[in-house]
């Protein structure tokens, strides 16, 4: 299970998590799009064989997961947990993954590239995540010779990853900032600095819950440290600005905020049917309210954990039969009724 999610960053309460991903290829094989299934299986076998002693890397234990043997639902759960991305899920070729028990570290083998190293950390811990990914990269790189070019750096299937092969991302919660008139300006400002922002919307098509992912747009020409620092700085800045807006709102509209917050709690705690959109927007209220100390629960609550819990694949998984849309909404409400603690 993804326990890495549980921790809350007391310093940066609006930053849900940090992720660092490194894209690597082994110079003995052509890239996955050109690799036939036989060769791909052979490569995966050799990679796993070469990393048999991986337990203990970053102080974690790892499982070998044969992704091509997993069912669609299991793959979708891994995607909801941010371990896999959707392009990997659709792929049919042999694929495997070395996954740490807490799901914080994963090495996907023969996805879009031969090896994709990913480290997830709760809160704003980009530097840490990079340090860990770098160590994992040293581990892999000491066993397999990477496709590397003096000029282009680490060679990847997509030229959008070439160079460092590094994508640093943070998920930030911006319920107040994103409502503001200045938000689009902020977004385009960030694009100027080479930082991309997009709403992450779970199953829905709109951005429910005001969660945004920011990440570096370019992977070449800047060192890993520079990229990581930049994304980290932007995340911190968004966190600060969100806090400023919320503090102002607290001064002028405290009652309105409290009212919205407690109504949200009431709906989540007692509703019999909740769509993804409803659930996400009320959970967004709870997340902000908890961060600002406006609401207290009888036991600690991790809103990111609840958000994972109400995703479609997870609810499907908890149920013993396939759910249609209405049944999903009912299952979502039931899940939240049980998981959301009492107030104190």
């Amino acid at each position: 299970m993804s326990e890495w999610f549980e921790e809350i960053d007391a310093e940066r309460k609006n930053v849900v998590c940090s992720r660092v991903r490194l894209t690597r290829n082994w110079d003995e094989y052509v890239f996955p799009s050109r690799l036939d299934d036989g060769k791909a299986a052979e490569m995966i076998r050799r990679l796993c064989e070469g990393m048999k002693d991986i337990d203990g890397l970053l102080g974690l234990k790892y499982d070998v997961v044969d992704l091509s043997q997993l069912g669609e639902l299991e793959l979708r759960i891994l995607r909801e947990h941010r371990v896999l991305n959707s392009s990997i899920i659709k792929k049919k070729a042999p694929m495997a993954m070395l996954l740490s028990e807490d799901e914080s570290v994963s090495l996907v083998l023969n996805g879009a590239d031969h090896i994709r190293i990913q480290v997830l950390r709760a809160g704003l811990h980009m530097a840490d995540a990079w340090k860990m990914a770098n160590e994992a990269d040293d581990y892999v790189g000491s066993r397999f010779s990477y496709a590397f070019d003096e000029k282009y750096g680490y060679l990847t299937s997509f030229p959008t990853n070439v160079g460092t092969g590094l994508r640093a991302a943070a998920i930030v919660h911006l319920p107040s900032l994103s409502l503001g008139k200045k938000f689009p300006l902020l977004v385009s400002d960030m694009a100027r600095f080479g930082v991309l922002i997009r709403g992450i919307c779970g199953e829905g098509r709109e951005n429910y819950g005001a969660l945004y992912e920011i990440s570096n747009q370019k992977t070449m020409g800047q060192s890993e440290q520079e990229i990581v620092d930049m994304v980290s700085r932007v995340a911190a800045q968004l966190d600060d600005q969100e806090n400023q807006v919320r503090e102002m709102a607290m001064k002028t509209h405290r009652l309105v905020r409290e009212d919205e917050l407690y109504k949200s709690y009431g709906v989540l705690k007692y509703a019999r049917r909740l769509s993804m959109k409803e659930a996400m927007s009320y959970l967004s209220q709870i997340m902000a309210g908890t961060a600002d100390g406006l609401i207290r629960f009888s036991r600690p609550v991790s809103v990111p954990r609840l958000i994972l819990g109400i995703q479609t694949a997870n609810l499907q998984n908890l149920s013993d039969k396939p759910l249609d849309k209405d049944e999903l909404d009912a299952a979502r409400a039931e899940y939240l009724r049980e998981e959301l603690p009492q107030l104190c």
Binding site: G141, Y154, P159, T160, V162, M220, Q225
Partner: peptide
């Protein structure tokens, strides 16, 4: 796309 044509950073 990358704003650069030369890798900077880690080397295996």
């Amino acid at each position: 796309i990358q704003g650069s044509d030369h890798h900077k950073g880690k080397i295996p």
